[in-house]
């Protein structure tokens, strides 16, 4: 399967301009015969939205923007980032990522872990998602994570336990730390790669990380998107800091081979994890 990664910047608060950019890149990816194109977190809106959140929100079932993207998804699968407002829950806004396929919404993931400390203030403006769930695409199961979700390894565990052979993490991660003299990247960037390698290997799953670039209010988004194979091997690495559009062939058979050779998935015991979590949550509640 040929995958396109759109390591782009967005115009902050301008869904119209961002939609056009998405459609251009989707067209390019289709021409290159890609079957999936992945955009970063909040790709339709930009990241540092604050009070713009309600103004740029999209209702997936009635939005013209979504209709145009759904039409485009007849030719290629898309992962896009949006501010989502659900019809059944008006006035509640999620930092969401949607997987669109064959003209339909295959899945929407609502970011569970909203960073709200230091330079981050997501929980001030967004509601929290509640679930990690893999979903079927073709003969494979896929899972979506958004930025900080990926740095909590329990998120990827849930997707692995749910059978995901492809874990897609979309991100708007600003770079921090400049005292590492020999490095090409911010000190915060290798954390993502560390997680990518570990999760891909121990989940026997492809991990595709798509981070954005550009600058918003002085913060630089670090780029450095990547793909790790189900053997934990680096398969593609995009440059840090620079916009990029890359295509990469991935071999979904490697998921089967990795699971056959190293049966972490077969030997997983979600019921033991569930029991342990149940106990510790009960104990916490009693405290």
């Amino acid at each position: 399967m040929k995958v396109a990664i759109a390591q782009i910047s967005s115009v902050l608060g301008r869904v119209d301009k961002n939609l056009e950019r998405h459609l251009e890149l989707i067209e390019k990816a289709v021409k290159e015969k890609a079957e999936l194109i992945i955009f970063p977190e909040l790709s339709l809106t930009g990241y540092s939205l604050k009070d713009l959140v309600p103004e740029v929100a999209i209702r997936p079932d009635s939005s013209e923007v979504m209709a145009r993207l759904l039409a485009a998804s007849k030719d290629i699968d898309l992962v896009i980032g949006l501010v989502e407002e659900r019809r059944e829950n008006p006035g509640i806004f999620y930092n969401s990522a949607a997987y669109l396929s064959l003209g339909k919404i295959a899945h929407i993931h609502r970011k569970v872990f909203l960073p709200t400390s230091g330079m981050f203030e997501e929980a001030r403006f967004f509601a929290r998602g509640h679930d990690f769930r893999a979903f079927p695409i073709g003969s494979n199961r896929t899972g979506l994570l958004i930025c900080r979700d990926f740095l909590h390894y329990s998120s990827s565990y849930c997707l692995m336990a749910d059978g995901a052979g492809l874990i897609i993490a979309v991100s708007a991660a600003p770079g921090r730390g400049i005292t590492d003299e020999g490095s090409q990247c911010f000190q915060s960037s290798p954390n993502w790669e560390l997680m990518g390698q570990a999760i891909s290997y121990f989940s026997s799953a492809y991990v595709i990380y798509c981070n954005r670039v550009g600058i918003e209010d002085g913060a630089t988004f670090a780029g450095g998107s990547f793909i790790y194979t189900p053997d934990g091997q680096l398969n593609l690495k995009l440059p840090y800091l620079e916009p990029d559009f890359s295509l990469q062939e991935i071999n979904l058979d490697l998921i089967r081979i990795a699971r056959k050779n190293r049966p972490y998935k077969r030997d997983d015991r979600p019921e033991a994890i569930w029991r342990s979590l149940g106990r510790l949550i009960r104990v916490q509640d009693e405290d």
Binding site: V11, L12, R14, L49, K50, D51, L52, I215, E216, D217
Partner: peptide
């Protein structure tokens, strides 16, 4: 609590 980004619309 009128909170907009510096790069609003840019």
């Amino acid at each position: 609590d009128f909170l907009y980004p510096y790069d609003w619309g840019k």
